[in-house]
Design a protein around this nucleic acid. Structure first.
Length: 853
RNA sequence: GCCGGAGUGGCGAAAUUGGUAUACGCACCAGACUCAAAAUCUGGCGAGGUCACACUCAUGUCGGUUCGAGUCCGACCUCCGGCACCA
């Protein structure tokens, strides 16, 4: 230990020691209980940014904490190394995406090591390496075998700027999730994974994780799956054998249906108009709607409702009424059945539409009167259209004007009417979901090739498992044009059919990179397995993940896909649980002021408000950087970058270091390593220090469990301040004083280790421990409740709820004694002497409140 | 529009879940050290009020419940996210 704190030297030294000792490598033959701590794997853009630093500082703190508590900790890292930026670099600068990616990984690996994150580097994986993406292909084929991977022509979301297909999730809001360009629609043959088969489980299993996941993430997942309970109802088309199936959540309003409305894309539109004089007008209208939708610039903008009457009639199966069939722009083909029953009185959109086109509005639900007891229908207002409604009444209520169902409550009618429809054969209760199948085809080079071969004779043939991986060629022509660059690589495309051995062609699309990240953390458990994605027995030892940490930008995409993938692996018998992640922490963004403005935005190159972690580490050291990032705000909050904050962090570390230096010679002397048992008497000051030490241990431990790292650092600072106040000098300290100081300093150093591990190691060594924090002897401290107990309580005394005095009392003071002491207190007497004491409230060991009049 | 979440000093934030509001840090002010500055150390730091106490007022606003409310209830305001014609 040097007299002065030199972060660079200390950090280099301990990073080397850790590496030599393989300190962070997790072993399967370790009998201790496991803990799997996972951070979202980074895309190797080339440079670590502050968001990474925050993410890994949090995960590393937890990993260290669990290690010191005696857990066998798995803390791995890898690279989400397929994806668009590498391909863009190839297009723009002619570099090879593989070289570009490998260089970036090498650089970022160095940065992570300089940050001192305690990863098990022996398990490092990268998605772009054949030994990884082989298993993407393997899973794909498993899904293909089971009909869960399929190909269909579909309208896809197309980013005109990047010239590629995007998933629904990636084009959420009608803009490309990466570049922000407005997304267009195109027809292409695409591969899909049938995530909709798992829609129900994705909602239902939320109950298994809701204790450990942030509510805001679960809410977004529920919204994304979009489960909706209702019913299908078939409306027969008059003078035809056609039926129109609609989906409704409000079957109780069906007597108020005054139209059936189809979306412009509905397949029945053309058929209905066969031989009708309105045909050309309606088809023109439908085309116009489709064109308007495709051309829409601002996807959030709601178009004015427009529609056209087809002239055809539908028959309401509940009352036999004939109602017109319309086509309108507000009905979406993608949701439900692409057709709705229009109930203007009880749906805002239908109401608006009916007002515009003067369709009848018929009230069939009345508010439940808020009287006592039974619900009473509000009297029907004589005739069906005589009452003018000014807006739709969308609440549940009581059915009126609804034949045999009149007088029933909505919630009963919804159930009974669906049963009735089913019994009569014109409908049934149904659940729909908003979630769509996951389109994974990408017309790109830099991804895992989809292992399918097209043969003129045999059709679509899966690549045999034994032939995996389908390896990407070394390079291709990167033009940036629409088709996958793989299509231009003859050696790749041309192959033979596995079935008939005739010449055949390979699929040239590659997989969405979210496939890679859906199961990567299982691969960490068994990263070099070349016979399977992983050994199920090894998986059993490590998974599920105990704590996952990452940004909430992945709340729906990655975190839904990985839940889906896990459920599929469970169906394959590879894992034995439904949910891969027990606890999830979504850390807040790191923002910085954009120069010349008052806007705080996520750090980015384009905004010029980035702070380079390397610069920060060079200037302040990894330990201070990590301390600052963890201390500045709760992990979930946005973290606004403030230059001066980090100076406070290094100041604290320097003070602690200096304190350890001051004592280390006395304390590292083995003669001083005595237990408390032999010490007869501690001074009041030493007792106070020990009390503070044990109180701090208890509270910091509780904070670590909750990942409240900012407050745990504040507590460590308080303990340090108590040490500063402790009035003893190393040269003259008594044995008891030395003991108290040792206990405080060692606890402080141990609890600081997860946050600033290098300097903690250095100080631990300085305190006379030769084998390091992970040598097996160092243990997370345990609080002794007896020692943490206050010797004397300061009890606030209130008069009428206002603080008027404080009294001192022994911890075992009785209620009676407290009451008497409070009433006898001079300051309190001044407030109560001229008043009548109505009552005295005594909260044992906490507070006294005297109520007077 | 609908659904979440949040409003506490100059700033980032605490508050054992109904019991001393503002812990810890940043910034700032003063003092010590220094020829001086930086660094470091010591002290101060919600607002009003007072020579100093006392006291009064303060957790977005207004009400309520309670001996007691940052915390619970009701209404409203503002900000930040998410979704967006989802039938």
């Amino acid at each position: 230990m040097d007299e002065k704190y030199f972060p660079e030297a200390i950090e280099k030294k301990w990073q080397r020691v850790w590496e030599e000792r393989h300190a962070f490598e997790a072993r399967e033959d370790d009998p201790r209980p496991k803990f799997y701590c996972l951070e979202m794997l980074p895309y190797p853009s080339g440079f670590l940014h502050m968001g990474h630093v925050r993410n890994y500082a949090i995960g590393d703190a937890l990993s260290w904490y669990k290690r010191l508590q005696g857990f066998n900790v798995l803390h791995p890292i890898g690279w989400d190394s397929f994806g668009q930026p590498a391909e863009q670099a190839a297009i723009k600068r002619g570099v090879n995406p593989r070289d570009w990616t490998e260089e970036n990984i090498a650089h970022m690996r160095g940065q992570l090591k300089r940050l001192g994150v305690s990863y098990d580097w022996s398990r490092e994986i990268a998605a772009h390496r054949p030994d990884y993406y082989k298993w993407d292909q393997w899973f794909f084929l498993k899904m293909f075998e089971r009909g869960l991977a399929y190909k269909k022509t579909s309208q896809v979301n197309w980013c005109p700027k990047e010239k590629t297909v995007l998933s629904n999730e990636q084009s959420s809001g009608g803009v490309c999730w990466r570049c922000g360009a407005a997304v267009e629609k195109r027809d292409l043959d695409q591969w899909f994974l049938r995530i909709t088969d798992y829609a129900e489980q994705l909602v239902a299993d939320i109950k298994e994780i809701e204790a450990g996941w942030p509510e805001k993430v679960l809410k977004r997942q529920r919204d994304w799956v979009g489960r909706s309970e209702g019913a299908y109802i078939d409306f027969a088309v008059k003078n035809s054998d056609r039926k129109i199936r609609v989906f409704t959540t409000r079957i109780d309003t069906i007597f108020g249906a005054t139209a059936v409305v189809l979306s412009a894309e509905h397949p029945l539109v053309a058929e209905l108009l066969e031989g009708s004089s309105l045909k050309s007008d309606v088809l023109k209208f439908a085309e116009r709607v489709k064109a308007a939708r495709a051309a829409k610039q601002d996807p959030t903008e709601e178009e004015a409702k427009e529609g056209i009457n087809t002239g055809a009639l539908a028959i309401n199966p509940f009352n036999g009424e004939n109602i017109p069939i319309w086509v309108a722009n507000y009905v979406l083909m993608e949701y439900g059945t692409g057709a709705v029953m229009s109930v203007p009185a009880h749906d805002e959109r239908d109401f608006e539409f009916a007002q515009k086109y003067i369709l009848p509005i018929r009230q069939v639900i009345a508010p439940v009167s808020h009287g006592q007891g039974q619900a009473e229908p509000v009297p029907a207002t004589g005739g069906d259209q005589s009452r003018v409604m000014h807006s739709a009444f969308t609440d549940y209520g009581v059915l009126i004007n609804s034949g045999q169902w009149g007088g029933k409550l909505s919630r009963d009618a919804i159930r009974e009417m669906a049963d009735f429809a089913e019994a009569k054969g014109f409908g049934c209760a149904a659940i729909t979901y908003r979630i769509r199948d996951w389109g994974i085809s990408r017309q790109r080079f830099w991804g895992s090739p989809i292992p399918i071969i097209y043969c003129d004779d045999c059709g679509m043939v899966p690549v045999p498992m034994a032939d995996l991986p389908v390896v990407l060629p070394a390079t291709a022509a990167f033009t940036g044009a629409g088709e996958s660059p793989l299509a231009g690589v003859a050696e790749f495309v041309n192959t033979t059919c596995p079935k008939c051995q005739h010449p055949a062609r390979r699929e040239t699309d590659t997989m969405d990179t979210f496939v890679d990240s859906s199961w990567y953390f299982f691969r960490y458990c068994d990263p070099r397995n070349d016979a399977a994605p992983f050994d199920p027995e090894i998986i059993k030892q490590w998974t599920p993940v105990d704590q996952y940490i990452g940004g909430d930008s992945h709340a729906v995409m990655h975190l839904i896909y990985t839940r889906f993938w896990t459920k599929f692996m469970r169906n394959l018998g590879l894992v034995a649980f439904n949910e891969p992640v027990k606890r999830l922490l979504t850390q807040g963004m790191v923002t910085n002021r954009v120069a010349g403005t008052d806007d705080w935005k996520a750090m980015s190159k384009s905004l010029g408000n980035g702070v380079d972690p390397d610069d920060m580490i060079a200037a302040f050291g990894a330990d201070a950087s990590r301390l600052f990032v963890l201390f500045a705000a709760p992990a979930e909050n946005e973290l606004r970058w403030i230059e001066t904050g980090i100076e406070g962090a290094i100041r604290f570390l320097r003070r602690v270091y200096t304190m350890v230096w001051r004592w280390h010679e006395r304390l590292s002397d083995p003669v001083q390593k005595r237990s408390a048992a032999g010490i007869e008497e501690f001074s009041a000051g030493a007792r106070a220090l020990r009390r503070k030490t044990h109180q701090t241990i208890a509270r910091v431990t509780a904070d670590f469990e909750q990942l409240h790292l900012n407050t745990s650092i504040a507590l460590l600072m308080e303990l340090f301040n108590a040490l500063t106040d402790f009035d003893a000098a190393p040269s003259s300290a008594s044995e008891a004083d030395l003991f108290a100081v040792r206990e405080a300093l060692e606890s402080l150093v141990l609890m600081l280790a997860p946050i600033s591990p290098h300097v903690a190691e250095e100080m631990w060594e300085g305190l006379g421990h030769a084998d390091g924090l992970l040598g097996g002897k160092a243990k997370w401290p345990v609080a002794d409740p007896q020692l943490a107990r206050q010797e004397e309580l300061e009890i606030p005394v209130q008069v009428n709820g206002k603080l008027r005095s404080r009294i001192l009392a022994a911890p075992d003071v009785t209620e009676e004694q407290l009451r008497a002491a409070a009433l006898a207190d001079e300051k309190i007497r001044a407030f109560i002497d001229d008043h009548q004491v109505l009552k005295v409230i005594v909260v044992p060991q906490r507070l006294v409140n005297v109520v007077v009049r």
